[in-house]
């Protein structure tokens, strides 16, 4: 198992860097080209959500990403340290209910629509979002 770890300060400007790193490693790991856009978007969503959570709760703490080549899967875990126990499943769309707070959970819906396999684990000590895609070669 090969692992790359990345930590970054909770700044929106760093999310793009995290997306680029994740996409580069996904490509090296053997994720199909047709899936790389999904990796880029899903990792970006998870990091954006983490940045927003940290800015609200603990702006000085770093966000951590682990990227792993694990038994034919490319697995990404984005971990934040902001307390969260209120991630709810998305509701049917109605423009009137699309408040800013509702939109903030849109990212989870997007990740669930993109990643092949997703686990969202919220806790009072932070949220882990683990997602994976099939990969064909080792790093």
């Amino acid at each position: 198992m090969a692992t790359v770890e990345l930590t970054f300060s909770a700044l929106p400007a760093h999310v793009r860097t995290a997306r680029l790193v994740a996409t580069a490693i996904a490509r090296r790991t053997g994720v199909e080209e047709s899936l790389l856009d999904e990796v880029r978007l899903a990792v970006g969503e998870a990091c954006s959500r983490a940045v927003e959570a940290h800015r609200a709760h603990c702006p000085g703490e770093p966000i951590r990403i682990e990227l792993r080549d694990d038994a034919g899967r490319f697995e990404v875990t984005v971990s934040d340290q902001a307390p969260s126990d209120d991630i709810k499943p998305e509701q049917p769309l109605d423009l009137g209910m699309l408040s800013d707070s509702f939109m903030s959970n849109f990212g989870i819906a997007v990740i669930e629509g993109l990643a092949d396999d997703v686990q969202v684990i919220p806790s009072p000590k932070g949220t882990n979002i683990r997602m994976s895609w099939p990969a064909t070669v080792s790093v």
């Binding site: 978007l41 699309l98 800013d100 939109m103 990212g107």
Partner: peptide, 11 residues
């Protein structure tokens, strides 16, 4: 590239 933050702005 467009993410959910961008969607939120459009909404």
């Amino acid at each position: 590239f467009l993410d959910s933050t961008g969607l939120g702005v459009l909404v």
